[in-house]
C-alpha cells in the first residue's frame, strides 16, 4: 500500500501572483468560510439534520475559490455534486445553501435538490450535477448559446478526474473544440473517483493528453495553492472568452471521506496525512504572515467573521419552513402553462 501513496505536488515557495494584501486576505477568508461551513455540515449530518449524500470539499477549497476570482457575473458555472465550495465562492447566500441541505423551502433550490443540487440562477450557478460528466454536454450548450448570441460569456465547468472515463467527456471535448466554444473545463483531480484511484481506471493517466488530442489547450495547476489557481484559471478564462475551449487540470486532494459513510478502505492514512501538510488554508496563511500581512489578531477576526456567517446560515436553515406537501408536484413544468 505504501508504494501506492501519491505525493502531493510541490508547492511554490514564492507566490505566483502578488495581489494586494486585502485581496489575499479575502481569498483566505473565503477558503476558511468553505472549510468551517462544511465542518458544521458534518456535525449537522451526524445529528441527522442533513440527510441524503453529503460530499465534502475539505482540502480542495483553493480550487473553487481561486477559479471563481476571474469569472464575471455574466459567466455560468456548472459544478458536480461536491459543490458547496463552488456555491459559496460564487457568492450564493450561505444560509440558502444550508437551508437547502435541511430540505427547507428557503433553500437555494427550495429543498428539492439537497446537497448535490445547489442551483442559483441569479449567480449563474447551474448546479450541483450528480451524474458524473452529465453536465459537460450542457456546458458545451451554454458555450454555444454564448457564441450564437454573442454575449461574451464563458461556461466554467468543474468535474472530477473520474469524469474523463465517461463518453460524455469525450463528446463534449470534441464538440466544444469543433465549434470553438467558450468553455473552461476545470478538472479537479483529487486522485480518486469515489474509491477508484486514477491509475486503476485510466490507461493513460496524463489527463491533459486526452484534452490535447481534441485540439484543446491543456494546463496543469497546483490546486492546493489558491493564488496559482487564480492566476492559471484567469489565463484560461481569457483564452476561452477569446478563442475556444481550454482544459485545466487542478491537482488537489480531499482530506475527508468521499461521502459521510465511507470507511476509506482504498487509501492509506499516511497518504492523507502527507497531503494535509499542504493544506491550502495553512499555505496561504503562512505566506501572508511571512509577508507581514496577517497576524494572530487578524486571523482571529477572520475566524470570528466566518463563524458568525456559518451560525447565521444554520439559524436561517433551522428557522426555514418546510414546503407544504400540497405543493409536491410543483416545478415539474413551468407554472403559467399548466
Amino acid at each position: 500500500m505504501n508504494e501506492a501513496i501519491k505525493h502531493p505536488p510541490r508547492t511554490h515557495s514564492e507566490p505566483l501572483t502578488v495581489g494586494t494584501a486585502e485581496h489575499r486576505r479575502a481569498l483566505l477568508q473565503q477558503m476558511m468560510l468553505v472549510r468551517r461551513f462544511e465542518e458544521r455540515c458534518v456535525e449537522l449530518y451526524q445529528a441527522a439534520k442533513i440527510r441524503g449524500f453529503l460530499h465534502l470539499y475539505i482540502g480542495e477549497e483553493a480550487v473553487a475559490v481561486g477559479a471563481m476570482q476571474s469569472l464575471e457575473p455574466r459567466d455560468v458555472v456548472l459544478a458536480t455534486y461536491r459543490e458547496h465550495g463552488h456555491a459559496l465562492a460564487r457568492g450564493v447566500d450561505p444560509g440558502a445553501v444550508m437551508a437547502e441541505m435541511f430540505g427547507k423551502v428557503n433553500g437555494c433550490s427550495r429543498g428539492r435538490g439537497g446537497s448535490m443540487h445547489l442551483f442559483d440562477v441569479s449567480h449563474g450557478l447551474l448546479g450541483g450535477n450528480a451524474i458524473v460528466a452529465g453536465h459537460l454536454p450542457m456546458a458545451v450548450g451554454v458555450g454555444l448559446a454564448s457564441r450564437m448570441q454573442r454575449t461574451g460569456s464563458v461556461a466554467a465547468c468543474f468535474f472530477g478526474e473520474g469524469a474523463v472515463a465517461e463518453g460524455e467527456f469525450h463528446e463534449s471535448m470534441n464538440l466544444a473544440s469543433l465549434w470553438k466554444l467558450p468553455v473552461v473545463f476545470l478538472c479537479e483531480n483529487n486522485s480518486y473517483a469515489m474509491g477508484t484511484a486514477v491509475e486503476r481506471s485510466e490507461a493513460q493517466t496524463d489527463l491533459s493528453l486526452k484534452a490535447s488530442t481534441y485540439g484543446v489547450p491543456a494546463y496543469r495547476i497546483d490546486g492546493m495553492d489558491v493564488e496559482a489557481v487564480e492566476q492559471g484559471v484567469r489565463g484560461a478564462v481569457a483564452i476561452a472568452r477569446e478563442s475556444g475551449p481550454v482544459f485545466v487540470e487542478l491537482m488537489t486532494y480531499r482530506f475527508r471521506a468521499h461521502s459521510m459513510y465511507d470507511p476509506e478502505l482504498y487509501r492509506d492514512k499516511q497518504e492523507v496525512a502527507a497531503w494535509r501538510e499542504h493544506d491550502p488554508i495553512t499555505l496561504l496563511a503562512d505566506r501572508l504572515r511571512a509577508a507581514g500581512d496577517l497576524d494572530d489578531d487578524a486571523l482571529a477576526q477572520m475566524e470570528l467573521a466566518v463563524t458568525e456567517t456559518v451560525d447565521a446560515a444554520v439559524a436561517m436553515a433551522e428557522t426555514g419552513e418546510l414546503e407544504p406537501v400540497d405543493d409536491l408536484t410543483r416545478f415539474v413544468h413551468a407554472e403559467a402553462t399548466r
Binding site: 454536454p137 450542457m138 450548450g141 451554454v142 454555444l144 463528446e171 470534441n174 464538440l175
Partner: peptide
C-alpha cells in the same frame, strides 16, 4: 451552417448541448 448545424455522432453530447443552449436563451 450556424443555424443548420451538423453534429458528430454524439447523441449525448449534442442533446446535452441543446439543453445548455435552451437554458441560456436559445
Amino acid at each position: 451552417p450556424s443555424r443548420i448545424r451538423d453534429t458528430p455522432l454524439s447523441e449525448s453530447g449534442f442533446v446535452g448541448a441543446g439543453i445548455g443552449a435552451a437554458i441560456e436563451g436559445m
